[in-house]
Nucleic acid binder design. Structure first.
Length: 642
RNA sequence: GCCGGCUUAGCUCAGCAGGUAGAGCACCUGAUUUGUAAUCAGGCGGUCGCGGGUUCAAAUCCUGCAGCCGGCACCA
């Protein structure tokens, strides 16, 4: 006899050891039919799990939050079964549920192609229609290994071998197909429904290690119902429309071409956005007590041998050799250059903290497969800075950096920022006492601000702990942009020092920090975040003056000039075209404001202001329109200033 | 770098049982002077990514390379 406490607090008693299906049945036939799994004292498990002691039980149905992950996991299994029915000899490996769907990695001589997907999907639907009961079995480890080896599933056998001793090996059977799995699962394949779709094929290394064999992965998406599936597919289409590569072309911002893989050609409009960002950051940094420097892009190899980059990252660096056979490296980082500036002359503790910013363009020979529009390039500009300070000053400096980063992100509408703290890795330099101090200072800065952060144990750089700043964009994607790192490697290698009050030379603490990270990438993120509709202060063209007929031309010139004098980036469209066409074209270019000027406006010295995305117009006196637009075009750090 | 796919006019794409290229938009010209997301007509425009091969004949088949796209691995 066990007492089962249900979510509403009621308690029911059962003879023997009931399972979830029986409990659901006892509550009601409807629930029994829609039951997919249960939570047993908060842990998700199969409906068929017998309950041998008093417990809290909640029946999971398609409406439950837990259901989706369960269904996606089942979808992976059903796909694996479909694949093995259609392509005998294919080995199954791992197939988990993931965000929005699932995947399964298969081992196969000929990898799957897109053309295989419709067939597999059709077979999956067949398996769902068969409504095969999904049955959990516990197998002795040796038997399981033997079985999978016998049927040629060597990856599975390896997986079983890796299950810690003492843990139960569970097998899930659906029809005559079975798979090693921890579970839990739906009671039958029919419960999966048909709201799934196979999306793409991809290569993936066994166990995520590039030294291993490459498997053939199939990705799918799965939802509780057709409506959610359709909504997801629509969302993907919308996301595609805000792809910065597409918008970059449509808005004439930049391009890439074969001769310079991973390096952007910035067009006038795109460069305007880029420059506006740099100008903004420069003002913010000056206000925060930074000085700005600039260092050479091409420097002798020797410098990079000293810095350690030659040993560690040589393969990812660009080199150039001159007539005299001297080898230079194109800088992949700004820090060695910055250090050379610091090292000019003798620095006193009175010079510290010294905050040296550099908008440095760096080149890294990234693996070809990693390149992705502006998001991952081989040539990019960092909003870099190196802060040299004493150990005592460090915490305050870190805090100032964190405050600056968060404040700056807010200006772009990124209110949700996560901070990751990475502490000492196993392989590191420096003694533990120093690590203690550096980690404590970083942590202390965060704690004093009360900003939450997550811990990334052992993920710090070998030369020091670091913070990473992850922002979330308008459609919920996370981007890691800013970093703050403590470095006790380069200061040592380059023998950086300052004279302390005691008259002796001491090693300063060196902080590396970047807020946007890569200007190129940040621009790409902003384009996608705003779906191309950049706020007025960033928009490459802030206003277009469009005429209806020639009768508006003279006044349009006057409006254009006045707007330009007010500091706005403005274009005039006096073409002999219909206003519909002009509105359409400038709207597609995401110009935030269109000022229509016709005969009426010219006579009254007004403009008809139309906002991007809006269908309404506002008739304003010219002066009023200028004042309004000029105010709206102020960078966020200038709002409220005269 | 690895796996798969793709590469035809400025853009989006069609053409592929092999017979030396086509549409829409853009662009140019002309007409139209127009009131808030495409006015009409005409015209221009392509070494079919690059190299090699098969063939009487290759955009189409085979092959090498490059770039791009989707993943994986990588990201100082």
């Amino acid at each position: 006899m066990v007492a089962i406490t249900l979510p509403d607090g009621s308690v029911r008693t059962f003879e023997g050891s009931p399972n979830g299906a029986e409990i659901a049945q006892a509550i009601g036939a409807g629930l029994a039919k829609s039951a997919l799994a249960m939570t047993l004292d908060g842990t998700l498990c199969d409906l068929s799990t017998p309950i041998t002691r008093d417990a809290k039980v909640a029946i999971v149905t398609a409406k439950s939050v837990e259901a989706l992950e369960l269904m996606r996991h089942d979808a992976a299994h059903v796909m694996a079964q479909a694949v093995q029915e259609l392509y005998p000899g294919t080995q199954v490996t791992i197939g988990p549920a993931i965000e929005n769907g699932f995947y399964y990695d298969f081992a196969r001589d000929t990898p799957f192609t897109l053309d295989d997907l419709p067939k597999i999907e059709a077979r999956m639907k067949e398996i769902v229609a068969r409504d095969l009961p999904i049955v959990r079995e516990e197998w002795p480890r040796a038997k399981a290994i033997e079985h999978f080896k016998k049927i040629g599933e060597f990856y599975k056998a390896e997986l079983i071998g890796a299950i810690p001793a003492g843990e139960v090996v569970t097998i899930y059977r659906q029809g005559d197909w079975l798979d090693l799995c921890r579970g839990p699962h739906l009671p039958s394949t029919g419960k999966l429904g048909t709201a799934f779709k196979l999306m793409k094929v991809a290569g993936a290394y066994w166990r995520g290690d590039s030294k291993n064999a490459m498997l053939s992965r199939i990705y799918g998406t799965a939802w509780a119902n057709e409506k959610d599936l359709a909504a997801y597919l629509t969302m993907l289409e919308e996301a595609e429309k805000r792809d910065h590569r597409r918008l970059g072309r449509e808005m004439d911002l930049f391009h890439f071409q074969e001769e310079a893989p991973g390096a952007a050609f910035w067009h006038p409009k795109g460069w305007t956005v880029f420059r506006t960002l740099v100008d903004y950051m420069r003002r913010r940094q000056e206000a925060a007590g930074y000085v700005e420097i600039n260092t050479p892009e091409v420097m002798d190899r020797a410098l990079w041998v000293t810095s350690g980059h030659w040993d560690t990252f040589r393969e990812n660096m660009f080199f150039t050799q001159t007539e005299d056979e001297r080898v230079f490296a194109i800088k992949p980082m700004n820090c060695p250059g910055g250090i050379q500036v610091f090292k000019q002359g003798i620095k006193s503790y009175r010079d510290l903290p010294l905050r040296m910013a550099e908008f440095g363009k760096v080149h890294r020979y990234e693996p070809s497969g990693a390149l992705h529009g502006l998001m991952r390039v081989r040539a990019f500009t960092q909003d870099d800075a190196h802060i040299f300070c004493t150990l005592d000053e460090m915490e305050a400096e870190c805090r100032q950096v964190v405050e600056l980063i968060l404040d700056i992100y807010k200006d772009f509408g990124f209110d949700s920022v996560r901070i990751k703290f990475s502490d000492r890795p196993a392989k590191r330099i420096g003694d533990d006492a120093t690590w203690d101090k550096l980690e404590a200072a970083l942590k202390g800065a965060l704690d004093h601000m009360g900003h939450p952060y997550t811990l990334n144990p052992g993920e710090g750089a070998f030369y020091g702990p670091k913070l990473e700043f992850v922002l979330r964009d308008a459609i919920g994607r996370d981007w890691q942009c800013g970093t703050l790192q403590v470095d006790m490697n380069l200061t040592e290698r380059f023998d950086v020092n300052y004279v302390a009050p005691d008259g002796a030379k001491h090693r300063p603490v060196m902080l590396h920090r970047a807020l946007f990270g890569s200007l190129e990438r940040f621009t790409g993120i902003l384009i996608e975040h705003y779906a191309g509709r950049l706020p007025a202060w960033l928009a490459p063209v802030q206003a277009v003056v469009a005429t209806i007929t020639q009768e508006g031309d003279d006044f349009a010139r006057e409006v254009e000039t006045a707007l330009r004098r007010a500091g706005l980036r403005v274009e005039a469209d006096r073409r002999n075209e219909k206003i519909d066409l002009k509105v359409r074209e400038h709207s597609l270019k995401k110009v935030p404001a269109i000022l229509v000027v016709g005969k009426r406006e010219a006579e009254n010295r007004t403009v008809a202001l139309r906002r991007l995305g809006g269908a309404k117009q506002e008739i304003l006196a010219l002066d009023q329109a200028i004042a309004t637009l000029a105010r709206e075009a102020l960078p966020p750090d200038r709002v409220g200033t005269p």
